[in-house]
Design a protein around this nucleic acid. Structure first.
Lengths: 140, 140
DNA sequence: GTCAGTGCAAACCCTTTGCAGAAAG
DNA sequence: CTTTCTGCAAAGGGTTTGCACTGAC
């Protein structure tokens, strides 16, 4: 049960640190997300929270995840055209994406070095660098 | 007009080289795509082809783009949760994505060096590496 | 004739929106 | 009270599907 790992008080602090009003629903979603580093779709969050006995609506899950992403508590991972994943690991890192299974796996930034960075287009500044290593199952 | 750059015969050859039956619609879509390296959404392809006077249905555009992607004639670029871009440049390269404008821009692989590649997850083999450098407009 | 390819409209699925009701201080 | 948040259901938008029609050998 994720609440063993992240207490309600922990979650509240984490939200308040980012200036987020810690409501019931936001606290529960935060507890779920930060129980461990993981990649969850909005739908998975919705179902997990509902399974834990708290009532949350779909709209609130989407609102909350967008808010968390905006405040830097989670990071959106865009690898699959059909849905967005929310990554509760905000350390600098990148992803393996298994095209066959849809699984997403982290790899540490330290395991990869980007030697030279190209010059950015005029009038722009860096927002972030995503490296996605797409893999397939070998047997298949 | 794109047909000046890629003749119908060129397009037919390109399709046949990949074992694709060169139908009317596929030829026109190929001519559009390969007139120059570019990033187009399915909807943009649909509108461009229709503007050029050829009748194509939405379903055929989606079918064709999927087919081309499968055969390696174009590459799907997934940077925006709301739609897929199809890149007619299949050389090894990566992308700048302007989060503010939605613009996609290539940068050559030679402008960037990936020093160390992490070990792939067990039982998987490499499918591809996508590097997306997200940028924002500086003034905004 | 045969079979792949195409077109149309409806279905799908994730996400967003509008707005009324609930919660918190 | 007032403001913010939540919930519900409907709408939105890109993509897929089902199925009948077309067209090229």
């Amino acid at each position: 049960m994720f609440s063993q790992v992240v207490t309600k008080a922990d979650a509240i602090h984490k939200l308040q640190d980012q200036g987020i009003n810690p409501t019931q629903q936001r606290i529960v979603i935060a507890q779920l997300l930060f129980s461990r580093p993981q990649h969850l779709s909005a739908d998975q969050v919705l179902m997990s929270v509902q399974d834990s006995g708290t009532h949350v609506s779909k709209a609130t899950v989407y609102n909350t995840l967008s808010l968390f992403a905006e405040k830097g508590l989670v990071k959106e991972v865009i690898v699959d055209p059909s849905k967005v994943f929310y990554d509760s690991n905000t350390d600098l890192h990148h992803h393996f994406y298994n095209v066959d299974t849809g699984e997403l796996e982290d790899f540490a930034n330290s395991n990869m070095a980007i030697e030279a960075m190209p010059e950015l287009p005029q009038g722009t500044h860096l927002d972030g660098v995503d490296v996605i290593i797409r893999v397939r199952n070998t047997s298949a």
